[in-house]
C-alpha cells in the first residue's frame, strides 16, 4: 500500500497537468466490448463482420441456420453497442426481411435478453446464442409478427411453407420478402 499511497499523492499533485502523450482513454464500453469480441466463441452457423475494424462498437452478425425452419437462409443483424454497455444491452436489428413471429418488418427483434432480461454479466456471445435459438425455436407467444405467430401455432406445415416462400423471395400475407437464401 505504501507505493499506492505515494501514487495517490502523485495523482493529487498532478491532477491539473494533462497526461503525457494526451492519448484518449478507451471508454468502459470499449474496454468491455474488446473483451467480449476477443472471447467470442461463435457457433459454426454464425459469422461477424466489422465494417470499420477500428470500431468494435458497430458490427454485423450473419446467421446461416443449418437446421430448422430457416435452414439455408442467411440473416444479417446489426449490433450497435452504446456508451452504457454493459449496463444497457446493445441495440440489435435484423437487416434481412424475415417471416418470423419474433421479428417485425422494421427489423425489431423480440428477444428477452435484449430487453427486460438483460443483465450486465451477459455478453455478445449470449446474444448470438439467443438469436440463433430464435431461428431454431420461433416463439409464437408474445409475437412481433402476429400473423406469423398465429400460423405457427395453428399449422406448422403452412408456417414452414410460408417461411420457404419468404426466403425464396415473394409475397406472404400481402408482404413482400426479399430473397435471402445462402
Amino acid at each position: 500500500m505504501i507505493k499506492l499511497f505515494s501514487l495517490k499523492q502523485q495523482k493529487k499533485d498532478g491532477e491539473t497537468t494533462p497526461r503525457a502523450g494526451n492519448q484518449k482513454k478507451a471508454s468502459a464500453a470499449q474496454l468491455r466490448i474488446t473483451k467480449d469480441i476477443n472471447e467470442l466463441n461463435l457457433p459454426k452457423t454464425c459469422n461477424t463482420e466489422f465494417p470499420d475494424p477500428d470500431d468494435l462498437l458497430n458490427f454485423k452478425l450473419i446467421i446461416c441456420p443449418d437446421e430448422g425452419f430457416y435452414k439455408t437462409g442467411r440473416f444479417v443483424f446489426s449490433f450497435k453497442v452504446g456508451p452504457n454497455y454493459p449496463h444497457e444491452p446493445p441495440k440489435v436489428k435484423c437487416e434481412t426481411q424475415v417471416y418470423h413471429p419474433n421479428i417485425d418488418q422494421q427489423g425489431n427483434v423480440c428477444l428477452n435478453i435484449l430487453r427486460e432480461d438483460w443483465k450486465p454479466v451477459l455478453t455478445i456471445n449470449s446474444i448470438v446464442y439467443g438469436l440463433q435459438y430464435l431461428f431454431l425455436e420461433p416463439n409464437p407467444e408474445d409475437p412481433l409478427n402476429k400473423e406469423a405467430a398465429e400460423v405457427l401455432s395453428s399449422n406448422r406445415r403452412v408456417f414452414e411453407t410460408n417461411v420457404q416462400k419468404a426466403m425464396r423471395g415473394g409475397y406472404v400475407g400481402g408482404i413482400y420478402f426479399e430473397r435471402c437464401l445462402k
Binding site: 468502459a28 474496454l31 468491455r32 473483451k35 467480449d36 454493459p86 449496463h87 450486465p120 454479466v121
Partner: peptide, 8 residues
C-alpha cells in the same frame, strides 16, 4: 478473478 460486470 474478474468482475462479471466489467470483466476487469
Amino acid at each position: 478473478d474478474n468482475c462479471g460486470i466489467c470483466r476487469m
